[in-house]
């Protein structure tokens, strides 16, 4: 404070108290502003009903050998593929091929809780790891698996990236076997 003189004990004390009040009021105001802004920012996060839709149950008995279905999980497509023995063999053989994102087939079919999955069931999140397009399963494609039409990423029968711009494998969707023929995703 300009009027506060250093040797005027009374004035100096006044200035200190005033400074304190300024800082305290300012801090309280800043905290209040932040607390007011926060709800307006946080309201954009997923709502309770959106989060409640976070699991999807799939009946596997309807999917015949060599067939794949797409199911929606949290608004995103998920591949549920009933793999043929040839696809399983190719996936396991390629565990040792040169991979961009090395991962064994067994890890990719594992359930959410870490228990082993069943080799014939491959459950993958269906968005290309490049920019999120949905790849198509192409019989007889270069690596026998999925091909992304947007920018040409090629995935093998385990959903691992083999060629093209995608940086990582198609991520497995977290799932659990509820019983022998039903899985729950999420």
């Amino acid at each position: 404070m300009a009027e506060a003189k250093p040797n005027d004990a009374h004035g100096a004390q006044d200035a200190t108290r005033r400074d304190f009040i300024f800082i305290a009021a300012g801090s309280a105001g800043a905290v209040g502003a932040a607390a007011t802004i926060w709800p307006f920012v946080a309201q954009m996060n997923p709502a309770a009903d959106t989060r409640a839709m976070s699991t999807t149950e799939v009946d596997l008995s309807a999917i015949v050998l060599g067939q794949q279905i797409k199911v929606m999980w949290q608004g995103k497509p998920v591949f549920v593929r009933h793999r043929t023995p040839a696809e399983i063999a190719a996936a396991q053989r390629d565990d040792y091929a040169t991979l961009k994102d090395p991962q064994h087939d067994a890890e990719r079919i594992a359930q959410e809780n870490g228990e082993a999955g069943k080799p014939e069931w491959l459950i993958l999140q269906a968005n290309c790891t490049h920019l999120g397009c949905v790849p198509t399963f192409v019989e007889g494609s270069s690596f026998g698996g999925w091909f992304c039409p947007c920018h040409g990423s090629d995935y093998d029968t385990s959903g691992r990236i083999r060629r093209g711009p995608a940086p990582t494998n198609l991520p497995p969707a977290p799932y659990l076997f509820v019983n022998d023929t039903t899985i729950r995703i999420g």
Binding site: M44, N45, P46, Q74, G75, K76, N127
Partner: peptide, 29 residues
């Protein structure tokens, strides 16, 4: 919208949270 919001996911550490925050869910909906 999917591609552009995916782009935001590339930001390190907080990208995924920003992406979900902008979309208001796991995907464009």
């Amino acid at each position: 919208a999917t591609v552009i919001t995916n782009i935001l996911g590339a930001v390190p550490f907080i990208g995924e949270s920003i992406q979900v925050w902008i979309r208001g869910g796991g995907s464009i909906d």
